[in-house]
Design a protein around this nucleic acid. Structure first.
Length: 152
DNA sequence: GCCAACGTTGGC
DNA sequence: GCCAACGTTGGC
């Protein structure tokens, strides 16, 4: 099993929104970055766990946990000219973009802030800290196990 | 709103 | 294939 970190702007979709629809799943779509696309297409599997990370907001950090309930399938929005995620260069014979489904697992009592994560010497190699700009990132098991101790 | 750190596009 | 120009992400 693998672990991931999924960024979302809580104004658009938050851990609270995911909790509200539980136990139903949310389609994680609109990813338009090739590095993230490759992770979706090739690596994300059912029952993987993911941190839900709130970005571009007042309280930036990890807000809770979700579980993958469906692995990669074609993101139909790329073919919809009315969608913000429309991609004129994609086609059905060779689709560019994929999505997957997640369901709610846990909503932390308080956000584990980026500030906390940045100042944690055990997390210096975390993709979130080293690379930053990537909306779907791998999290090592060691990092995962350490980070969830913050949520107690 | 600023701006650094990327990623993408397109001319050559 | 290089690289300048441009666009986006995302913390602050």
């Amino acid at each position: 099993m693998n672990y991931w970190l999924l960024k979302t702007e809580p104004d658009e979709f938050s851990i609270d929104d995911l909790e509200k629809i539980a136990p139903r799943s949310e389609r994680w779509n609109g990813i338009r970055n090739y590095q993230a696309r490759n992770i979706i297409r090739d690596e994300i599997k059912i029952d993987d766990l993911a941190f839900i990370y709130h970005s571009s907001c007042k309280n930036v950090g990890i807000a809770g946990i979700a579980k993958v309930t469906r692995s990669a399938y074609i993101d139909e929005d790329q073919f919809d000219s009315n969608s913000a995620y429309f991609d004129i260069k994609s086609n059905r014979e060779n689709p560019r973009w994929y999505c997957f489904d997640v369901a709610f697992i846990e909503n932390f009592n308080s956000i584990i802030t980026l500030k906390q994560l940045k100042s944690d010497l055990k997390l210096l190699d975390m993709v979130l800290i080293k690379q930053g700009r990537l909306s779907i990132q791998p999290v090592k098991k060691k990092e995962w196990d350490h980070i969830i101790t913050y949520s107690n």
